[in-house]
Write a protein that binds this DNA or RNA. Structure first.
Lengths: 207, 207
DNA sequence: AAGTATACAAACATGCATGTATGTATGTAA
DNA sequence: TTACATACATACATGCATGTTTGTATACTT
C-alpha cells in the first residue's frame, strides 16, 4: 500500500491502539504478538513499528490515551462537590467504580493493569507511570482528609495517609476481584456498601 | 548425570520449585524460561520436564505447596478465637497481613499472583484454583458475619456477602499496593487502621 | 546378581516473535 | 512539476522458548 493522508495515518494509529487494548485485555500482553495487533487493526507489523517503537511504547500510548479524560473528570468533580470533603471523597470513589463498569476503555485498561500484564523491570516505564499516577492522586486526596479532620468530620487521631491508602486499597481490591469474575457479585451494590462502611468507620467517636 | 536417590529427586524437585518461585516473583512468569529455572536450580531442562509436565504444572505445584500450610493456619485460628466472630475476622485479616510481610514463600507467591502473572485463558487451571480458594474462603467467612449479626455486633441491615467482599477487597488492595512499592507505606500500621476502620463502620447504629 | 525403572542430561526439531532493512506508491511542499 | 517526506508493506535475519526424543548411569527390585 502507498502513503495515505495524515488523517488516515491518525486513524490507523487509533485503530492500532483499539486493537491492542482489546487484545491485551483479552489475551494478556505477553501472549499477544505485534503481528496479532496489526492484523486485528487491518494492517501489517510495518504500520505498528512506524507509529510505535515497540510493545512498551504501544502500552505507554494506551495509558496516555486515558490519562487526560481521567484528569478532566477529577477536575469536574472538584467543582461540584467542594462543600463537603467527605462527600467529595465518596463521589470520587463511586465515580471510579461507575467508570470501570460502564466505560469500555477504562475497563479494558484497568483489566490490563490489574490482570493482563506482568510488572517486571523491563516494563519499568509503565510501572513508574502507574505509581506516579497513584501517588499523585493519593497526595492530592490526602488534603481532603486533612480538611475533613479540621471540620471535625473524621476521627482526628487517625493517620491521614493511612486513611487514604485504606480507601484506595478498598477500591483497588473491589475492582480487582470484580474484574476477576464479574458475575460473582454486583460491583455497584458492594462498592456502595463497602465505601460507606469504611467512611462511617472514620467518624469521630461520640464522647 | 545418572540416576540419584529418591530423596535426591525430591530435593531436586524442591530446588526447582524454589528457583521457579524466586524467578517468577522477580522477573515475571512469562519472562522466565524453563531453562532459566533449571539453571537456577543447578540442573537442566530435562529435570524440569521429568518432574513437571510444563510451565503451568510448575505453577500449579507452587500453589499446591502453600495450600496446606494456609489451611492449617485457618484451622488453628478457628480454635483460638471462637468466642467473638468479629475478633476472629480481625485476627484472620491481620494474620494474612503478617504472613505476607514475614513469610518469604507467601510473599513470593502472592507477588506472583498479583503482579507477575497474566490471567489468560491459557492459565485457566490456575485462575480457577485461585477463584475457588477465594470463593470458598468467602463463603466460609460469611458465616462469621451472620453470627455477628445474630449477636448484635454488626448492623443487621447490611448485606453479609457484601460485607465480606469489602473486607477481602480491602486486604487484597492493601497487599496489592504494598507489594507494588513496599517502602511507600507501612503495611502493618496501615492495615491495622484500615481494617479497624472498616470493622467499626459495621457496628450497629446507636438509636 | 540381573533386570528394570528411574532421574536426569543432551540433542533435535519446530515455531514464533522481534527488530530491522528495504521497497514503493502516494501526499505534500517548493 | 519536481523533489522529498511519509505511511506503510514486504522480506530477512536472528534468537530463543518449547516440547520431544534419545541416551545413560545408577538406584531399586526380586
Amino acid at each position: 500500500m502507498a502513503r495515505r493522508t495524515k488523517e488516515d495515518a491518525l486513524t490507523t494509529r487509533s485503530d492500532l491502539l483499539d486493537a491492542a487494548e482489546r487484545l491485551f485485555s483479552e489475551k494478556g500482553v505477553s501472549r499477544t504478538s505485534m503481528n496479532q495487533v496489526a492484523e486485528a487493526a487491518g494492517v501489517t507489523r510495518g504500520a505498528i513499528y512506524h507509529h510505535f517503537e515497540n510493545k512498551l511504547a504501544l502500552i505507554d500510548a494506551l495509558m496516555e490515551r486515558v490519562r487526560l479524560p481521567v484528569d478532566d473528570m477529577l477536575e469536574e468533580l472538584a467543582k461540584t462537590h467542594n462543600s463537603n470533603p467527605i462527600a467529595m471523597l465518596r463521589a470520587r470513589c463511586l465515580h471510579i467504580i461507575h467508570q470501570v463498569q460502564h466505560d469500555d476503555h477504562t475497563q479494558a485498561l484497568i483489566t490490563i493493569l490489574l490482570h493482563k500484564c506482568e510488572y517486571v523491570d523491563e516494563a519499568l516505564p509503565i510501572h513508574l507511570r502507574h505509581l506516579e499516577g497513584r501517588n499523585a492522586c493519593i497526595s492530592e486526596t490526602e488534603v481532603l482528609v486533612d480538611l475533613a479532620k479540621e471540620q471535625g468530620l473524621i476521627d482526628p487521631t487517625l493517620d491521614s495517609r493511612a486513611v487514604i491508602m485504606g480507601l484506595f486499597s478498598l477500591i483497588d481490591g473491589l475492582m480487582y476481584n470484580w474484574l476477576l469474575e464479574p458475575k460473582y457479585f454486583d460491583l455497584n451494590q458492594t462498592a456502595l456498601q463497602a465505601i460507606d462502611t469504611y467512611l462511617r468507620g472514620l467518624e469521630p467517636r461520640s464522647p
